[in-house]
Design a protein around this nucleic acid. Sequence first.
DNA 1: ATTAGCTTGTGAAATCATTCACAAGCACAC
DNA 2: GTGTGCTTGTGAATGATTTCACAAGCTAAT
Lengths: 208, 208
Amino acid sequence: MKRIAESTVRRLSLYLRFLEEFEAQGHQTISSGELAAQGGTTSAQVRKDLSFFGSFGKRGLGYSVSALSASLREILGLGRQWNVIIVGAGKIGAALAQYKGFRERGFKVIAVYDADSTRIGRTLDGVTVRDQKELETDIAKLKPQIALIAVPAEAAQTLVYRLVKSGIRAILNFAPTPIQVPPNVTLRSVNMALELEILSYALVNNDD
Amino acid sequence: MKRIAESTVRRLSLYLRFLEEFEAQGHQTISSGELAAQGGTTSAQVRKDLSFFGSFGKRGLGYSVSALSASLREILGLGRQWNVIIVGAGKIGAALAQYKGFRERGFKVIAVYDADSTRIGRTLDGVTVRDQKELETDIAKLKPQIALIAVPAEAAQTLVYRLVKSGIRAILNFAPTPIQVPPNVTLRSVNMALELEILSYALVNNDD
DNA sequence: ATTAGCTTGTGAAATCATTCACAAGCACAC
DNA sequence: GTGTGCTTGTGAATGATTTCACAAGCTAAT
């Protein structure tokens, strides 16, 4: 299949949220326009996004909420549980470990690691913080598919090498530094200070 | 000035990081190629990004590290302190309130709010959690420019209306829901579960 | 059965972003 | 001062994404 743009995947994920809300409200069908209104996009965009994966609607009627939800879950690979490890049990790592939103979407935090002996042994929402020395053996045993990294910037790249070598193929990085990964590994980064700098730029430059 | 793409602003912010590292290492000048290598982009991209704002380099030589740093800080509006409030003192809000990276870049958390009486009165890194009822009067008095929101999804949109009405013009949203803002307000959203879903998609669909 | 009223799916067009490629400019050596 | 070696700044070309616009298809009413 043709490569799909990340922006498209991101929107599909949003559409799925709305569909679930719609379903909870008891609606049977939804049009591309209604879906678009929720996500701040256009009906043409919605239809184009979906068209990359097939044809899910009925002309004149719209989309079946439940059928489209199911299709999107299938496309996004959400029909299963993903096992996640978190490396770094500082403020951010601990907050992530206890974040309910992951579990609701099928992402289960199965282990948390840190290098600091004062943090090792603590329990976060039922998961005990382990020594990062155990990473390699634990990954071999537990086979997590996704790693979240919330370690200091200096430690991030070295850690990523270790994770990749151990077989991790998807990483979500919260350390405020760019990371290199080989092409068969997917990396996404969330850099909160950088988001604030973009806001700063907007505040200084927007003369609406 | 012509509207600048967000991706460009994001990269400028990254370049600034590298320049600061370079400066700490005692380098005087840097070429677009060196800057690009750090940020995983190309030298042409670096030069194009900068060209939107002027001409900062010397042909044959490259850029003065200190001069370019200063220019980027100026462009990004970082030559000043920005006052930030955080609404929501749960796990994520509390982690944000204590995150050192903001302060280092000139973003000062001056107040934290919550609706839950068990959280009100707690102190997070020198800032006491206040009742969200005080938001309007506090904003009028303290004039923060930026708000971070870390409240439950259901509460987010209503909160944003209140913030906008009180004069906030830049919002960083961590609540896992899309938010509407008027055109004179800049909104950015960080949705962690959504990032994981993009990783899920990649895991299911990448056959490298 | 035909019509009216919607809504999809999708090529084509338009817009936006990145990469190419090269003239112009600077520093240093001789 | 002339030449050599780099590196910038930038139009032009390419590539990617979004928007447009409309034929095709479905439902329900008559």
